[in-house]
């Protein structure tokens, strides 16, 4: 067989638009997914059952349902229940962010619980409130331990963004599909898409290694 990358390169601008879409949804889901995970993770081990039960239910529900199903559900079912339309971006962001929040909540919970009781004792004995102890003493140490897992989650979110193509959100895979359907060169296009993903992710992975090394300082 003959590889035909010429048409792929010719339509690099189409893929570039897709890459921007991928980066946009990635940025939104990264912030929402990892950000929401923290309060959920804290709720997961709260002593108050009114905090713990909903947090646990949230984690169990979103961890145990496929993201693709969630995205499609948000796109098609939610507008029936709610009085407004939901665009492909919103539907995909909801699915990916809530799923990532459920997974990262477990990372936060594990990281925070791995900090020795003595650290809480030291902070509380100084007269710190729960929030002060968390912010000044517990989280700075826990983040270091959680970083590899959180970086993994970020990489996962980046790749999950392709699921947004199921509701026709303009991102890399969606644009690849478009080119492939016009020129019948799916092998070349998907090879290119895979290569772009790996090229964008490479510096991200390096950044996480670098952060990990940097945060190790002092201990």
């Amino acid at each position: 067989m003959r590889w035909d990358f010429a048409t792929v390169i010719e339509h690099a601008d189409v893929l570039a638009i897709g890459a921007v879409g991928t980066l946009r949804i990635f940025a939104i889901c990264l912030v929402l997914g990892l950000g929401l995970g923290l309060p959920v993770g804290l709720g997961r081990y709260a002593r108050n059952p009114w905090l713990r039960a909903p947090a646990t239910a949230f984690v169990e529900f979103f961890r145990n349902t496929p993201v693709l199903v969630q995205i499609i559900w948000f796109f098609f079912a939610l507008p029936i229940l709610l009085p407004f339309q939901i665009g492909p971006l919103t539907a995909a962001v909801l699915g990916i962010s809530l799923n990532s929040a459920a997974f990262s909540a477990e990372i936060y919970r594990g990281g925070i619980q791995s900090i020795e009781r003595g650290q809480w004792d030291g902070a509380r004995a100084l007269g710190m409130s729960w929030l002060q102890a968390m912010r000044r003493v517990i989280l700075p140490q826990a983040i270091k331990r959680m970083l590899p897992a959180l970086a993994n989650r970020a990489i996962e979110i980046f790749k999950m963004s392709t699921l947004a193509s199921a509701v026709a959100y303009v991102e890399l895979l969606q644009q690849g599909k478009l080119i492939a359907s016009l020129y019948y060169n799916p092998i070349e296009v998907y090879t290119a898409v895979a290569a772009i993903f790996s090229v964008i992710l490479w510096p991200l992975v390096q950044l996480s290694y670098w952060l990990e090394r940097r945060l190790k300082g002092g201990e």
């Binding site: 003595g118 004792d121 509380r124 004995a125 100084l126």
Partner: peptide, 26 residues
């Protein structure tokens, strides 16, 4: 009340068997 207890702890210093220093601070 937690707030009241926090106030008391500010006025009572405690030194522990295992130090409980914060390892991420000098």
């Amino acid at each position: 009340a937690e707030r009241e207890l926090t106030q008391i702890r500010r006025q009572v210093g405690m030194v522990f068997q295992h130090f409980n220093l914060f390892p991420h601070m000098t």
